[in-house]
Structures are given as structure tokens and as C-alpha cells.
Simulated scan of single mutants.
Amino acid sequence: MEPADLHRAVEAGRATASGVGLQVDDVSVVHNSDRVALRLVPCDVLARVAPLGHLGDSEFEVDVARRLADVEAPVAELDPRVEPRVYVRDAFAVSLWTYYEPLGSEIAPADYADVFLRHHAALRQIDLDAPHFTDRVAGALREVDDGERSPELSDRDRAFLSDTLGGLSAAISSDRAGDQLLHGEPHPGNLLNTRKGPLFVDLATCCRGPVEFDLAHAPEDVGQHYPGADQDLIHRCRAVNWAMFSAWRWRRDDQMPDRDHWRVEGLNRVRAALDRCGTG
């Protein structure tokens, strides 16, 4: 968020927590993108604050979290001291979560695969109306194919991303027999190493698809420790993931830090992923 919006988001998070009886003496920004994550102390809450246009996504995330908590999934939990819902404050959607102090050590590939197995098993126990991953691909395609939404994307790269997103997603989704609920974006930034063990966060990306779509977000060694995973399918999913990432970076209104670097790097990652799966 831009500084003025960020200031308002911080105040919305502070006021929301204070309004439900939590003590907030200080606020620090943990993450700032299209929505922000704030640490509130001394109540030790993580407030996730999004513009009101993302209210539906915030409500979906809270619903996913509540259902997964019931089946003891390895996910971050909503703060148990307050009503588990989304609060609206000053044109922002605010949800309040337990804050977990992250451990400094990396999560080993075998442990990463193990938490995937437990998370996927938990997801199979809940009934949820979630989009298919191809719906997200379609959203990325709209950004790529509309020159007004991505005016700085060259014609050559536009065609490259469009062909990659359309062709690979169609091939991956041609057989949906093994599809299930997924996290959706379980990259290392969305898996916290905590004293309770590894916990997934950012649950608003929950979707349906093959487990390989999730595995493609993790470091490459992780998929090798996941029993029964199709390694070739992981490579194809990784190319789609990087193509979607690149599509978002070329949006006119994208606010990711160091966006210019990631615009170039994203396209390079797509090409590298395509080379790995033999379709470059």
C-alpha cells in the first residue's frame, strides 16, 4: 500500500483490536503488499488488513481457517479471544489472528513434504466451495491479454505468457480425477517455522487442483519427498505458477516492492521452468 493508505490501514487494525477489548500499545508492519499484516502488542495479535474491495477474499480466508482448525490442520489460527469473523473499519476488512514468533531455521525438505501431507489430508476432510486453479489462471490471462491492464508488457512477452498460461493450464487440468482442495500458494513465505511446528498462513488462495500444483510452489527438493507425486507434473505446474506471478507483476497497478526487478526475473523463471519440463 502507498504510505497514506498504509497509515489508514494501521489505524484500522489498531482500532479494530482495541474495539474488541485487546490491548494495543504499539503496531509494527510485518508485510505490506495489496493488503498488510500487522503485529499488535502487547496483545500479540496478527491483524490482516485489506481494502474493502477484498472483503470477499478476507471472509473466505476466515471461513477456511475455521474449518481447518476443526480438523487440526497445520495452519495459523484465528485469535481465540475474539469472534472469528472479518471486521469492517474505515473502508478496510480486518481479521485478527494468533501471532507466532518465527524460528530462524529453515524447514528441511522432508519436513516441508510432511506438513504438505498433513495439510492435504486435512483439506480432504472439509467441504468447501473453492475455485479451481484454472480460474486463477484465467484471471492472470485477462491481465496479460488486456493491453490497458498491462500496458508496459511487450507484444512478444504478452504472447509468450498468454501461450504458456493457456496451453499448460489446459494440459494440466485435462484429467481432474485426482483433484482436491489445495492451499493454493504454499511458497516458503507462507509456511512459518514456529514452536508449534511448521504452519501454513495466507489461506485465501485455497483452490482445487492436483497436489502437484501446491508442490510446485515449494523448493524443488520438497516434491521428491512427497509419496506418489508426479515430478513431471510438478515441473509443468511450476511453469504455470511463474507465469501467473509474472502476469501479476505486469499489471498497471501492481504494488509489489522491487517490481521492475521481478518483472524481468519472473519471465526468466518461466523460461527456466519450461526448459525443465521440455516445453521451452
Score class of each variant (00 low, 15 high):
52 L>Y: 00
57 D>K: 05
66 R>F: 11
76 A>S: 10
68 L>T: 13
79 D>K: 12
69 A>H: 14
68 L>E: 09
83 E>Q: 14
58 S>T: 07
85 R>I: 12
79 D>V: 12
66 R>S: 13
49 V>G: 06
78 L>V: 01
46 L>A: 06
67 R>G: 00
47 A>G: 09
56 G>F: 02
49 V>M: 04
58 S>H: 08
73 A>P: 09
44 D>C: 09
43 C>F: 05
62 V>N: 07
68 L>A: 10
75 V>L: 11
61 E>W: 03
68 L>R: 06
60 F>M: 07
46 L>V: 11
49 V>A: 07
76 A>H: 00
85 R>G: 03
68 L>P: 04
64 V>P: 10
62 V>D: 01
84 P>V: 03
50 A>T: 09
80 P>W: 06
75 V>G: 08
57 D>L: 11
46 L>W: 13
72 E>H: 15
54 H>E: 15
46 L>H: 10
46 L>F: 14
76 A>W: 01
66 R>D: 06
59 E>L: 08
65 A>F: 01
57 D>Y: 09
50 A>P: 00
60 F>E: 01
70 D>F: 06
77 E>T: 14
64 V>G: 09
81 R>Y: 14
61 E>M: 01
60 F>Q: 03
51 P>N: 03
55 L>F: 01
53 G>Q: 09
60 F>A: 03
45 V>H: 02
48 R>V: 09
56 G>I: 05
80 P>E: 04
44 D>E: 15
45 V>K: 10
54 H>V: 02
64 V>T: 06
52 L>H: 05
75 V>A: 05
70 D>N: 11
74 P>Q: 12
85 R>N: 07
63 D>L: 14
61 E>Y: 03
71 V>H: 06
43 C>H: 09
74 P>K: 06
43 C>W: 10
48 R>F: 00
71 V>Q: 11
83 E>W: 15
58 S>V: 06
59 E>N: 11
67 R>F: 00
71 V>E: 05
49 V>H: 05
54 H>L: 14
52 L>W: 13
72 E>G: 12
47 A>T: 07
51 P>L: 08
52 L>V: 15
81 R>E: 06
84 P>H: 11
76 A>I: 10
50 A>G: 13
72 E>R: 15
85 R>E: 14
60 F>C: 06
82 V>N: 09
76 A>L: 13
84 P>N: 06
81 R>L: 07
60 F>T: 01
49 V>P: 11
76 A>Y: 02
43 C>M: 07
49 V>E: 07
